[in-house]
């Protein structure tokens, strides 16, 4: 297993955001985590990248225990998070944003990897010396993924990457995720776009109010009648609403 997480708890004061979560991602596997607003998906990913300290639990990546490791140690080990809301640096140029992705790399290939991103995303190449704030939402998402990709991750974690994208960009995004996976990168995909996520993933987990309530292959989850119910989890969010966000 590439990533093995057991008994993970995340607390913010009184809020118990993630409760005793046990998940795993295999080498070169796509795994999705589904759940309604506030289910704890972001908290889970942030704990995995080391941005929040879990209250308890164990995180083993590639055989190494990274439970108490700093985010930089996790980046070095090969974990990269594409955060919710993209979080690109709008005061920097497109190129500088990509350079932030190789912040910890000192090898000569780093510059070549950045050029490879420009080959992959010609839109970014055209705007390389412009401030990242001029990019469209879709381009910003490409930049956020490119920024993570140049770090040469073995596991890429994406937090609701399709949020706010046009349908055209959503399908391009999912194609890209499959493509990255085929190049050998393990993917942990947090999504509210259940249908698309289950189409590309091999397995999936459903989070509800911080707990994993369902765990199965993507195929059976897609057919599972209780999924919609668990996914709704007492929130006003509905599949049609989720679809609306992606329109």
């Amino acid at each position: 297993m590439l990533l093995e997480v057991s008994g993970l708890d995340v607390r913010y004061g009184r809020t118990h955001a993630v409760k005793n979560a046990t998940i795993s991602v295999g080498e070169g596997e796509i795994v999705t985590v589904l759940g309604a607003n506030g289910a704890g998906k972001t908290s889970l990913l942030r704990a995995l990248q080391g941005a929040v300290r879990p209250a308890s639990g164990r995180i083993v990546f590639d055989g190494k225990d990274l439970t108490g490791a700093s985010p930089s140690a996790r980046v070095r080990a090969g974990m990269m998070l594409v955060p919710e809301g993209r979080q690109i640096f709008v005061s920097m140029t497109v190129h500088e944003n990509l350079q932030m992705g190789v912040y910890l790399r000192s090898d000569r290939d780093a510059a070549r990897d950045i050029e490879a991103i420009y080959d992959r995303f010609p839109n970014l190449a055209e705007r390389r010396d412009m401030k990242a704030s001029v990019l469209s939402g879709g381009e910003q998402q490409m930049l956020a993924i490119g920024r993570a990709l140049v770090g040469r991750p073995r596991l890429m974690m994406l937090d609701e990457p399709s949020l706010g994208l046009s349908p055209l960009f959503v399908s391009r995004l999912f194609d890209l995720i499959v493509e990255l996976n085929q190049s050998g990168i393990g993917i942990l995909l947090v999504e509210q776009n259940t249908t698309m996520a289950l189409e590309v993933a091999a397995r999936g987990y459903v989070l509800e109010l911080g707990s994993i309530v369902l765990e199965d292959t993507a195929e059976s989850l897609a057919r599972n009648p209780t999924l919609t119910e668990a996914y709704l989890g007492g929130h006003q969010n509905s599949p049609s609403h989720a679809a609306g966000e992606n329109a």
């Binding site: 941005a51 979080q87 709008v90 932030m100 910890l104 920024r147």
Partner: peptide, 16 residues
């Protein structure tokens, strides 16, 4: 500059 703009995003990219 990354820390100045967004300490959180800087952190997850490995800026210590």
């Amino acid at each position: 500059r990354a820390i100045a703009e967004n300490p959180d995003a800087a952190n997850i990219l490995g800026v210590d």
